[in-house]
Simulated scan of single mutants.
Amino acid sequence: MTTKTLLKTSIASSLVAALLAVTTGCATTPGYNAYGDIYEDVYKDSSLYKKHKKTIKSIDKDIYQPAIEQAAANKVSSMGYRVKDVKYKKGDRTIKIKAERNRQNYKIELGYPNYNVINIKED
């Protein structure tokens, strides 16, 4: 091997090792959450969060609940029902839906978060 190829190989391997070390360090940092706010634990301890806790929770409800209810309504509509009412309460594992099909009323329960049908009852 020539010194030029040996130099290229050592530089490339050292760059890969450095990038791997940085990536590992970022992913294992305490308080890091890839799916949420990385500073969430800092905010929840602050007086500002405690002061506006009710407002933050209501905004959370206003943002996510309609999207969950709409996805459930789309699922039931694709099954051939006409959706009348959808009810989901944060923290529940079920979504309750009132629907109609062939002039018959039904109560349908879907599981959350996978939207699988749990129960269909004639109302």
Rank of each mutant, 00 (worst) to 15 (best):
T9Y: 12
I63T: 06
N114M: 13
A73R: 06
L7K: 15
L15S: 12
K44L: 04
S77H: 03
E122D: 08
N74H: 10
D37V: 05
Y35K: 14
S47H: 09
Y88R: 01
L110E: 00
I59L: 13
I68H: 02
A73H: 01
A34L: 11
Y43D: 07
S58F: 05
T2F: 00
K87E: 03
L7Y: 14
R103E: 14
N74C: 09
K121Y: 13
I56K: 04
K75L: 04
D41W: 07
V16W: 12
E40P: 09
D123S: 10
Y115T: 00
K121T: 14
H52L: 14
K51V: 08
S77E: 07
A12V: 14
T2A: 03
N116L: 12
T9K: 13
S58Y: 02
V76Y: 00
Y106M: 02
N33E: 11
S58W: 01
Y32L: 01
T94S: 13
S46M: 01
L19V: 13
T24V: 11
R101G: 01
Y115K: 00
G80D: 05
I120D: 05
M1T: 10
L20G: 14
C26S: 04
N105P: 05
D62K: 06
D62H: 08
T24I: 08
A71C: 09
V86G: 00
A21W: 09
I68D: 06
K87R: 07
I59A: 11
A34D: 09
L6P: 04
K89R: 06
G80N: 03
A34Y: 07
T24L: 11
N114P: 04
K87D: 06
R82P: 06
C26F: 08
T29S: 07
V22D: 05
Y88C: 00
K57F: 07
E100M: 04
T2C: 04
S78A: 08
A67E: 15
D92K: 08
R82T: 14
I95C: 03
K98G: 01
A17S: 12
T23F: 08
Y81R: 03
A12Q: 14
Y81W: 02
K75I: 03
K8Y: 15
D45N: 11
L6Q: 09
V76I: 01
K98F: 03
K53Y: 10
I108V: 07
I108H: 01
Q70I: 09
L15D: 12
T23A: 09
L6C: 09
L110V: 02
K51S: 09
C26V: 01
I68G: 02
S46H: 06
T5K: 13
A71K: 15
D92C: 02
I63D: 05
I97T: 04
S47D: 10
D123P: 08
P113H: 02
A72Y: 05
Y35L: 12
T9W: 13
K75E: 05
S77D: 03
K121A: 11
Q65R: 05
S10L: 15
D62Q: 09
K54Y: 08
L15H: 09
A99Y: 06
T55N: 12
T94R: 14
S47P: 04
I95L: 01
G25K: 05
L7S: 12
Y32R: 06
T5R: 11
L110G: 04
G91F: 02
K61V: 02
S77I: 02
D41Q: 10
K8D: 11
G36R: 11
K107M: 11
K84T: 03
